[in-house]
Amino acid sequence: MDAITDNLDLFVSGYWTSLKICLIALVGSLVLGTIIAACRVSPVAPLRWIGATWVNMIRNAPLTVLLFFFAFGLPEIGVLGSYWVFGVSALIIYTSAFVCEALRAGINSVSSGQAEAARAIGLPFGATLREVILPQAFRTSIPPLGSVLIAMFKNSAVLGAFGVGGDLFSVSDTLTSARGYAATPVLLGVAVGYLLITLPAGALLALLERKTAILR
């Protein structure tokens, strides 16, 4: 356990870096995912096509391929930028497709009578979605959304291999390879670090689920 106690500062800084990546990607993917979901259920056909294409392309590509495209493909065509921005963008885009589908499942669960009633009182599409459908959809979407987001937290470990330094998982590389610590205790420390992100997140989601539960 020396490996962890001796390098606690390294683990803590890795934890914060990972948490920062996760929080930014969380907000980003929720916003982007909601927009794409809105496209997929919109009455405008071209928007539906864009949404469907987006989901089918992004969801069916491995995250590493997306990261490769950002970290090595974009510079190849002259788009230079920080690997941090590239990595987090790729994570947001990747997760947005899953967020979109989780939300769409929620939207589909809202009975069509709700949308018809909203239209009947004269609400336009945007307001129908914003005021009537989405608040109900989010509730139903919380459990699948939670799984998607927790998966995203863990996916953030992959960013370390694409030039995004200092995250929790690359801490293990530094300690085992360069400083010669045994792998098992170091990886245990890393695992605990990720648990410290995902377990509170899971608890928060459970709380959210209880608070928003529909009384039927």
Binding site: F72, P75, L80, Y83, A161, F162
Partner: peptide
């Protein structure tokens, strides 16, 4: 940081 030097050389070539 990358996992192999080839990627570093690539990043140097593209100007990253």
């Amino acid at each position: 940081l990358f996992d192999v030097y080839d990627k570093c050389a690539d990043a140097l070539r593209t100007g990253q």
